[in-house]
């Protein structure tokens, strides 16, 4: 089924525990996370410091680390946690239903 304003992003199973994948929609790109507690989160795809995709980075607890400069964000809130990043990451609401993950990007 579809929800008004929500876009089908992926399946729950597409993301390993404590990991992240990339999701592209039209000309935008996002990172979708699965925490060690099996909760799901979404943020903008690119790091706010330089244009490197966070889906290539490592998830540790609630943190995502940029693959290039090791800046860190709390992906559950978007908060910048470690230099060189100083600007927060935009987060997006997700919805789970029967194994599907939906994202609201507007």
């Amino acid at each position: 089924m579809a929800y008004e304003g929500w876009i089908a992003a992926c399946e729950e199973e597409d993301i390993e525990e404590e990991d992240v994948i990339r999701f592209d929609y039209e000309d935008r790109t996002f990172a979708i996370y699965r925490s060690a507690k099996n909760e799901y989160f979404a943020t903008d795809g690119y790091c706010t410091h330089e244009k490197f995709h966070l889906a290539d980075g490592l998830v540790m607890g609630n943190y995502i680390e940029c693959p290039k400069h090791n800046g860190r964000f709390d992906y559950t809130t978007g908060e910048a946690k470690r230099a060189p990043v100083c600007q927060a990451l935009k987060t997006y609401p997700l919805k789970q239903e029967s194994g599907h993950i939906w994202i609201r990007i507007n």
């Binding site: 490197f52 995709h53 290539d56 980075g57 693959p67 290039k68």
Partner: peptide, 10 residues
């Protein structure tokens, strides 16, 4: 590609 970064970090 950028995909090596995760493993190098680990």
């Amino acid at each position: 590609g950028p995909g090596i970064a995760k493993d190098i970090r680990l």
